[in-house]
């Protein structure tokens, strides 16, 4: 499923790029200082974060999952498009897109054990700048479970074999971020999982994360 998902994303992104290229004759690069021209800001850099991982309990097993620590790290890719300011400044446009590739780990308390689940996450968010530095963002975060430990969870005389768990989810993500002019960004984000871990294991994941990232401008 995750493979189909990636193919779809790539296909749709290709459509978007094609569309953008069709508009290329209208684009004005920032160093041209031409009023009413479009400016494209692209940043790329590392991002790390930490926060709280939460999971709903499965309804028919007394696993008693409790929230635990979550952390993540990876690469952030940001695009911002703006018109030239009438003041002649090179400013920030209202809209932007953030795409990240993250390795995330989420831990939960399961009885006297700690369940650690490692994911590959690709947040894809639409950003709206409230001010030049403060923005809100929303979007979807596809995730894929890489592994989980321990390899089982036990409730009485029943064990769930976590090694057979194959979690794919698209989390609904929303948050806010503050960006400094020199590339440092601090964000808060809430991710709400919508898929159950397994059709016979009815837990859903949500995380509340704080992150810090530094984006090197590729195009300003």
């Amino acid at each position: 499923m995750f493979k189909k998902f990636l193919i779809t994303v790539l296909a749709l992104s290709f459509c978007d790029i094609t569309f953008a290229q069709e508009q290329q004759d209208q684009w004005i690069w920032p160093d041209q200082h031409i009023e009413d021209a479009l400016y494209l800001h692209i940043g790329l850099g590392p991002t790390i974060g930490g926060g709280l991982a939460m999971a709903t309990n499965p309804s028919f097993f007394d696993y008693d999952l409790k929230s635990g620590f979550a952390y993540q790290g990876g690469v952030a890719f940001n695009i911002n498009v703006s018109h030239h300011s009438s003041l002649g400044l090179i400013g920030i446009g209202r809209w932007g897109v953030e795409i990240e590739a993250l390795y995330g780990a989420k831990s939960y308390k399961a009885g006297n054990k700690t369940l650690l689940m490692n994911y590959l996450e690709i947040p894809m968010l639409l950003q709206f700048y409230l001010t030049q530095g403060l923005l809100v963002e929303a979007g979807l975060t596809p995730v894929k479970l890489i592994n989980a430990s321990p390899n089982y969870l036990q409730s009485g005389n029943v064990t769930a074999d976590m090694g057979t768990m194959k979690v794919n989810d698209v989390m609904i993500s929303a948050g806010a971020c503050f960006k400094t002019p020199f590339g440092l960004a601090i964000g808060l984000r809430y991710n709400l999982g919508v898929s159950e871990w397994a059709e016979n294991f009815h837990s859903k994941t949500s995380t509340a994360m704080a992150s810090i990232s530094y984006l090197f401008p590729l195009i300003k």
Binding site: K4, T8, V9, L12, D16, T159, S195, N200, F201
Partner: peptide, 19 residues
């Protein structure tokens, strides 16, 4: 794009083994 992605959320993950 995100609308298509949302369709994937309708998919269920397979079951796991209980012993």
């Amino acid at each position: 794009t995100w609308s298509f992605l949302a369709l994937f959320t309708m998919c269920k993950n397979p079951g796991i083994d209980y012993k």
